[in-house]
């Protein structure tokens, strides 16, 4: 039963990710990207990763896809230019991904894949202690993976500062007074008594 659910939602994921790259309107493309992430979140729920499914929805649909939609609407690109050269590069891309997929499926079918006997952090043992998915993730994120967690937080800070620095621009003719000029005013030079 759960396998048929997995087949159904993975079919939707593949179909909508096809539409992301083939639809000519960029706004529709972003909306199909959101749809892909929704169905990927359902697949994460099938894999019993509840926290990651909700985080995928919050981070991708709530932040990244809205950012994409904002930029698409701000730039206002005409649709006719976008699809130029589509058919010229399509056969080349199809050739490359077919080579790539054939190589991957040869690896999947070979019996040389060796899975480890036991995992580092066993989910079943943690579940038997009465902890849910979110609590166990937090337990290991703040102890074993603490340094990586801090570095990823710093990476987000760096991305925020970088995006602000890149997108910030000084106006050529600002309507407001610069605070530095305002502060440097001397009362002896600016007030005149006749």
């Amino acid at each position: 039963m759960i396998l048929y659910f997995f087949y159904f939602f993975s079919f939707i994921v593949i179909l909508s990710s096809f539409l992301v790259i083939f639809v000519s309107n960029p706004v529709h493309s972003v909306l199909f990207l959101i749809f892909t992430f929704f169905n990927a979140a359902i697949i994460f729920l099938i894999f019993k990763a509840e926290f990651l499914a909700m985080t995928l929805l919050i981070v991708y649909v709530g932040a990244v896809a809205v950012l994409f939609l904002f930029v698409v609407m701000m730039l206002n690109i005409s649709e006719s230019i976008i699809k130029e050269g589509f058919l010229r590069y399509f056969p080349f891309g199809l050739l490359l991904i077919s080579i790539f997929l054939i190589e991957l499926f040869m690896i999947f079918n070979s019996d040389k894949i060796i899975f480890p006997e036991s995992g580092l952090i066993k989910i079943n043992e943690i579940m038997n202690l009465g902890m849910d998915n979110t609590k166990s993730l937090g337990l290991f994120l703040y102890t074993d993976y603490f340094i990586i967690f801090q570095i990823s937080g710093f990476l987000l800070l760096l991305a925020m500062i970088g995006a602000i620095v890149l997108a910030h621009s000084d106006l050529k003719n600002p309507k407001s007074i610069s605070p530095i000029n305002q502060k440097n005013v001397d009362k002896k030079t600016i007030i005149k008594l006749n």
Partner: peptide, 27 residues
């Protein structure tokens, strides 16, 4: 094999998307 096929297909579609959309960096 189930999720390996799913993830490799999605990866290949993303790979193809980089090739075919030459005029659109957003895609």
């Amino acid at each position: 094999i189930h999720f390996l096929i799913l993830s490799s297909s999605v990866f290949a579609i993303g790979f193809l998307g980089i090739f075919v959309n030459r005029k659109n960096i957003i895609t």
